[in-house]
Every structure is written in C-alpha cells, then in structure tokens.
Design a protein around this nucleic acid. Sequence first.
DNA 1: AATTCGTGGGT
DNA 2: TACCCAAGAAT
Length: 298
Amino acid sequence: MSTDTRATAHHDLHAPVIDWFDEHARDLPWRRPEAGAWGVMVSEFMLQQTPVSRVLPVYEQWLARWPRPADLATESAGEAVRAWGRLGYPRRALRLHAAATAIALSHGGEVPRDHAKLLALPGVGEYTAAAIGSFAYGQRHSVLDTNVRRVFARAVTGVQYPPTATTAAERRTALALLPDDKGTAARWAAATMELGALVCTARGPECVRCPIAASCAWRLAGSPEHTGPPRRGQTYAGTDRQVRGKLLAVLRDAVDPVPQSALDAVWDEPVQRARALDGLVADGLVEPLADGVYRLPV
DNA sequence: AATTCGTGGGT
DNA sequence: TACCCAAGAAT
C-alpha cells in the first residue's frame, strides 16, 4: 500500500460518517440550538458513565429549574445533589454546582470558550472540555470518549476494543483523522460518537448498518475476538459504593435532616456503614449536624 | 498507573 | 442468574 493510498483512506472516512450522521442522528435536547453552552455542559456532566435514556428526564428538569449557571450557583449544593436523583456518581452533581459557581463568579456567567479555562473547572477533564468546545462552540478538538475510542480501535487499528485507559497512540490516531476545518471537525466528533453509540456498539456491532464497514480494519481482519486479560468488571454488590448509594438515597428523599437510626437501617454491617458515611461527609455530599443528625449540604 | 466513585437496563 | 457496560474525573 502506498502512503498516498493511506492518507486518502483516512480522508474517505469523513464523508460517509458525517452523511450517515446527518440521516441517523438522534434528536437529543442538548443538540438543539436552544440548549446553548450551558445545556451542553450539563448534558456532558450527566452523561459521564450514564446512559442517554436515564439522563433525558433529569436533564429537562435541571435546565427548566436552572436555565443559566448563575441560577444553579444561587442554590445550595445539596439541592443539586437532590435534583441529581438516581443518575449515580453524585459527586458529579457537586462538581457541576461548583463549576456553575465558578462560572458565575469568574467568567461573567458564561460557559468559557477557552479550552484551558474549561479544563480548570471542577468535573471537567480532557473529554468534557473537548466536548463542550466542540459541541457548544464549534471548535476543532479530538473528542475521545468511549464510543469514539471503540470506533477507532475497530475501523483504524483493527482490534475489537480500545485499551483500558486512553493512550498516546489513540490521541495520535484521533488527531490524524480530525478534519482541518473546525466546523467539519465538530460534525465529525458528534458523528463518530453517534456511530459508536448506535452501530459500532461494544457488544453487538451492526456492521450491516455501518457506513464505513467496507474499510473497517477490524472487519477486514475477520473481526478477531479481544485477546489478553479480561477487562475488569465493576463489582458492585457489597461494596462501599452500594452502601453510599443507600445512605444518600435516604437523605435525598427526606425533606428534613435525618437521624442516625434512619441511616443505620439501610445496612447491617456497622463498620462498613460508618466508613461509607464518613466517606460521604469527606466528599461533601453529606453534612453532619449535632447529635447524630445528617442532611444534604447547605 | 491503578482505584474509586452509582445505578439500572440489556443479554 | 451473573455479567457487561454506559458521552469520565479525580486522586
């Protein structure tokens, strides 16, 4: 294969994927123009490790209640945790509240456009900063989420799954494929994510529906199964995380501060229960009051 | 670099 | 039933 052919092959992915996206993209609320940068930012926080279907109703309520960052910033962190509901990983609610506060105080109430300023916000990492810049502001960024990483692992590298953590090689691949024009790059980012979410899925990829199946390196190699150590499953039953979840659920659902006895009822093992509660307090998710009474943070 | 951090639906 | 996995970040 000549180098000329390889460069062309990369370029040939853009049009089919973007055309496919134009036809099959889901109509998600954070993709509508009225969502604005704040809507995009809220959605990105909620979508960190949480499926779209579960985010949708919470997102709508959140934006209706807090249409701008400053609106959220005037509320207590505990109200953010309560409104987060059962999305999971409630520290994200705390970070979103803290980010909104920083935006209100230090960025004139507007979600920053600058990548470094985005990265400096609590809860905003490499992926989320790129996603906000790309989706909200049409900038040119490699947006490397789990979907895009899987699409590139298959279509470009020829393996079933990407590495556990994002590697330098993946960043190089993403950058090499990123369209030069920023508007096209933003469409490409959304399109590759959508392709991974809807077609090139982790379990059962539907290659018959894939716009780049003919050039997919993994498929051309015969769709080889993942080799190497099995990827770590997240065990959950019996962990501190489960206990934290049960404890926080009690506090979320209570209007008034909760006595120790109500928390003790959710888990029978006292040492683990105490450790979980201490962890919640240390994280700022729970506020201890006098004599064994607890509440969400004010 | 490896762990920790929730929750629920799909298979 | 168990297991997998879902727009990651922080430490």
